[in-house]
Design a protein around this nucleic acid. Structure first.
Lengths: 238, 238
DNA sequence: CGTTAATTTGAGACCATTCAATTTCGGTGG
DNA sequence: CCACCGAAATTGAATGGTCTCAAATTAACG
């Protein structure tokens, strides 16, 4: 079975691919690669040579500012490219880090660009992936820019839960949740201390239970309401 | 002269287009449309039918949250699409508003999709536009998530100044700057009051002068340093 | 000029931060 | 299996950046 079958499956949820398109994907030269937790998969400033599809584990993208503070700008689950933009960039403009131990399918930039040039339907699929990313970025801006701490974290959890569900990684409202509180803080623009207190509030409100990397949603409606969550922006991401 | 010549010019700054590609762009059926200041050009929840290229004036994209607060997620200058994502969305997932009186070249979704399907080089150009947007979104997240008020505003000004320069809209560090302080606040995740005080601080530090819609950069190096600004992420946006 | 929008100012309150210390957890080796 | 270790989570108290609310001033525009 091809390492890119998860990609084909995800793209076919949007619309069916022709046999030739599927064959072209499966013919891509792929290298498997592992990454340890916290390992840098892409580093800002590095010349780019490949794109990587996440096969298992989770990863996130982040930027560092001068004083050393970190802002996480997205979180990735299996079936997604973690650095699709590198396909069209000479130099990486942000960092990608493994959140857990990860397994990657690495494809050369050139092969992916050739694929897009030769097969319009796949070019569109790649474009759509970029667009889905961008939609999430926009909502992420709103989250850190205009919501208070409780809403921010609630919103982030809602988004992750829907995406994990779509990827078949959740069962009955329970999820593996490998983010540390410090990482959750870096994703929401808060401090780790305040994130801790905010999580306690969410637990006291009986919205979630979260401990030892296990997240359970106790009150989905309530969490969505608190997080001011509407799933429209995830249209092409699920 | 074609209304899409500014688009061709911008795309050709990245790499030359073939005569056929240029002809295909110029053959697109285009409708001109005006928009008054503050007018909604796209409304969240609306079915999408067209994409619009900004010919003159400025526009911005924003989302509203439940309590009515607004977060501006991007600002657009002539030569850019203000709603390219609508090409691949059935329903708009955010709002687009005119910042000044604007002039638009409206193209039907279908025509643009056909263009992308038929002409790989143009599909790539559209993809690259989406990617450039996404790079700006990422930095925008960092800005509102991790920088303090002075840095946030300085960073936003740095970005706009470079983009205005690239679009040929600046002369000698002086720019038309139609954002009200309230809009600047909504873009940076601050309040209008605090934005006002922060601008006063930037003026007192002799970094900028800003009044009656005219921005002058007095100390570019200093502004970049304060804003923790690095232009790498604008690689494809300029 | 008159009217409305935009900017500016002041003071008090609050959400989130900072800094430091403590407790718990997960994994490791004896 | 337990002792140990570092990482992660938790707690407390004080500080501070930003917000809120309200009012005054200035600028924009017909």
């Amino acid at each position: 079975v091809s390492p890119l079958s998860s990609l084909i499956r995800r793209w076919e949820r949007r619309s069916p691919l022709s046999a030739e398109d599927r064959a072209a994907i499966e013919a891509l030269p792929v290298t498997r690669r592992m990454g340890e937790r916290d390992a840098y998969l892409v580093q800002e400033g590095q010349p780019t040579t490949t794109c990587a599809l996440l096969l298992s584990g989770m990863a996130f993208r982040q930027k560092l500012i001068r004083d050393g503070a970190r802002q996480i700008v997205s979180i990735h689950i299996p079936g997604q490219f973690v650095d699709l933009q590198n396909c069209l960039l000479d130099v990486a403009d942000h960092n990608v880090q493994a959140l857990t131990r990860v397994e990657l399918a690495v494809i050369s930039k050139g092969a992916l660009n050739d694929l897009a040039a030769a097969r319009p339907a796949l070019a569109k699929a790649l474009w759509l992936d970029t667009l889905a990313d961008a939609a999430i970025f926009r909502e992420w801006i709103v989250n850190v820019g205009r919501r208070d701490a409780k809403s921010r974290i609630a919103h982030l959890l809602c988004e992750l839960v829907l995406r994990l569900d779509a990827a078949g990684q959740g069962n009955h409202g329970a999820y593996k949740f490998p983010l540390t509180q410090e990482q959750l803080a870096d994703a929401t623009g808060l401090t780790a201390v305040h994130t801790n207190r905010t999580l306690q509030a969410l637990r006291k409100d009986r919205l979630i239970s979260l401990s030892s990397q296990a997240l359970t949603v106790l009150d989905w409606r309530g969490l969505c309401h608190l997080g001011d969550f509407s799933e429209r922006y995830l249209r092409h991401a699920l």
